[in-house]
């Protein structure tokens, strides 16, 4: 038998079966076994070695055939490995790891903080359990003054109470450093209000304070305008109404373009196109003097807003109590 002829036959048979494989009529394993398997054509050719006259040549030819086919088969494995797996039902869902979520109130807080950080404000903190001095007296609420009625206060004992606003941080911040001071202070506050859709005994405020030489009312207006545009969108406008807070003068309540109807008038804004979200004002000289700042040299502004209220407006959440129920269907939305 002619070893060369045998090798040629095997080769051409391989070419033919390769076509079958490429057309999908033969699978990879069968192809491989037919030629390179233990009982395959190549092995079979080797087993006939003793029948060949020039054994050395036959060995050489068969080895190079084996190498050639092995290489071809291996290149098939690399190029068309999919050929060896079955086709998947790609419409089945993936193994999805659970995606966690942030609470909408803390997320709103972070958005607000980020705007102020970008404006150069620093973070300040103060205690939630506070004394009358920091919560009221140093903020120019005289004892026995009806202004205190604006805050339904929880008392602990003696002069200790739960802070009714984050404005106590103004005093802590100013007492601990010389001007300029430019801080924000987010945190929980407490008022003795029965919980309903818009009230909660525990709520979160964010306070901002800037004291320096030459801080003016125009600056306050400009900063707040920039802030609400960053938070609610560029078309948002502000409107200032005179009001009264003991620790600022002049004081203002600040309305912004209704975030729901963009100022056209809707139920949320009671058809006015405006919603009140901030209290603001120029730091009262009595407050500056209470922390040892010279009110002739320094002036400042302060403002505060309720974080839950912003979240309710921004996301159209109708009831404050949803925030504290922590229903996972609610939590997963944000």
């Amino acid at each position: 038998m002619d070893v060369k002829k045998l090798a040629e036959e095997i080769k051409s048979s391989f070419q033919e079966e390769l076509k079958n494989f490429e057309n999908g009529n033969l699978n990879f394993e069968d192809l491989k076994n037919k030629f390179l398997g233990r009982k395959g054509l190549v092995a079979d050719a080797f087993s006939q070695m003793r029948n060949f006259t020039d054994k050395a040549l036959a060995g050489q030819i068969l080895n190079s055939l084996k190498n050639e086919l092995t290489e071809k088969v291996n290149s098939l494995t690399e190029n068309t490995s999919s050929a060896k797996t079955k086709k998947l039902d790609l419409s089945l869902p993936g193994r999805k790891p659970n995606a966690g979520t942030l609470h909408v109130v803390t997320e709103t807080q972070r958005q607000i903080e980020d705007i102020f950080f970008a404006m150069g404000f620093e973070m300040a903190t103060g205690p939630q359990v506070e004394t009358d001095f920091f919560n009221f007296e140093s903020l120019n609420f005289p004892p026995d003054h009806p202004a205190r009625e604006m805050h339904d206060t929880f008392f602990v004992e003696g002069d200790v109470l739960l802070r009714t606003h984050t404005s106590n941080v103004q005093i802590h911040a100013m007492k601990s450093q010389e001007p300029p001071v430019r801080v924000i202070a987010p945190g929980k506050c407490y008022r003795n209000d029965t919980p309903d859709a818009t009230h909660s005994p525990v709520f979160q405020q964010i306070e901002a304070l800037y004291v320096d030489k030459n801080v003016t009312f125009t600056e306050l207006k400009g900063t707040l305008d920039a802030f609400v545009k960053a938070l609610f969108g560029k078309a948002t406008k502000t409107r200032f109404r005179p009001s009264f807070f003991p620790f600022t003068e002049p004081s203002a309540e600040v309305d912004v373009t209704c975030v729901v109807c963009k100022g056209k008038g809707c139920n949320v804004c009671k058809q006015t196109g405006w919603i009140e979200i901030l209290g603001a004002g120029m730091v009262d000289p009595n407050v500056l003097e209470a922390v040892g700042y010279d009110s002739e040299i320094y002036s400042g502004y302060a403002f505060g807003l309720g974080i839950e209220r912003v979240a309710m407006l921004k996301y159209g959440i109708p009831d404050l109590r949803l925030f504290f129920q922590n229903d996972i269907r609610f939590l997963k939305q944000f």
Binding site: G120, E122, T216
Partner: peptide
């Protein structure tokens, strides 16, 4: 300012930014 109106006070943002804090 209450009588002349808060609206008559323009918006201005003059504070120079310093980046140490952010």
């Amino acid at each position: 300012v209450r009588i002349i109106g808060y609206d008559s006070v323009p918006l201005k943002k003059t504070a120079e930014l310093d980046f140490h804090s952010a």
